[in-house]
Design a binder for these strands. Structure first.
Lengths: 152, 152
DNA sequence: GGTGAAACGATCAGCCT
DNA sequence: AGGCTGATCGTTTCACC
């Protein structure tokens, strides 16, 4: 993982439509060695996959909600059940087990308040939750799928 | 935006490496009309771009921190200054203006506690913040760049 | 929406520096 | 390690129906 790999990663994580020749040129290589590096980065799982990013706004997903949850019980079985229950919702796009006051943090994408209410009811249904708090995003100031590389 | 478009979007947001022929086949079209639909979805900005997703774990980014911030002041100029200040950090991968007790929520990706401390100092430096609380993710249960399409 | 063909780019072998 | 050539192959792209 040298500076050239780092430069390649920086390029492809910003734009996966770049042609191999363009990437090679920008990192100061010809296409073949550049291609070999990309292959290696994929095989090692550093590049995990390529995806198309969709405009949540254009698709009417105007509402981002962060839901904080306190566990109903604290045995391993409950944790596992809740993890699978909540992960199954398409609306849950991120889901973390947290330190601190709340045990879980969910990022939820929905179109409007009615949809959120519908989601909320299904989320809490049949699961023993101790406390659920929803915080609404007023504005998305930044959203990036690019990870920082400056520490390498 | 009919069911076929929806099916195309669902496929490409999960895997942008799919060949046009594969997409076409799975949605019941031949390649040309499918290609025209994708072009249209791109031109309309529904598909905004393609990116490579990198493994944060493989890159040593073991720590995800959610930082909640209360504004120091509440005039428009302060908001704008803070938005640009915090957005500039590579470590800040998501950034929202929130309703509720805290004014802002930042999702921060760093390699370890020392890096977070370094980031934190730079974040609060020279900016008038009223309250800053950091919550640490113990485990990432779900992370998806795919938006829900079930409401369309 | 479909067909067929041309144009393009990615892939990889072989060899050289 | 990188670089060069060239050949193959799959895909995208488009003119036309």
């Amino acid at each position: 993982m040298d500076d050239t790999d780092k430069a390649i990663l920086s390029l492809v994580q910003h734009d996966a439509d770049l042609a191999l020749n363009d990437i090679a040129e920008q990192v100061g290589l010809t296409s073949t060695p550049c291609w070999r590096r990309i292959q290696r980065l994929q095989q090692h799982g550093v590049i995990s996959k390529k995806v198309a990013l969709l405009s949540a706004e254009k698709l009417g997903l105007a509402m981002t909600v962060f839901v904080q949850v306190k566990a109903g019980r604290h045995d391993g079985k409950w944790l596992d059940t809740f993890a699978r229950h909540a992960s199954a919702f398409e609306e849950v796009v991120e889901f973390y087990r947290m330190s601190g006051e709340f045990d879980y943090l969910l990022k939820v994408l929905v179109s409007d308040m009615a949809s959120f209410d519908h989601f909320y009811k299904r989320l809490v249904n049949g699961i023993d939750l101790n406390d659920v708090t929803s915080s609404f995003a007023m504005e998305q100031i930044k959203y990036s799928t690019c990870v920082p590389l400056n520490h390498l």
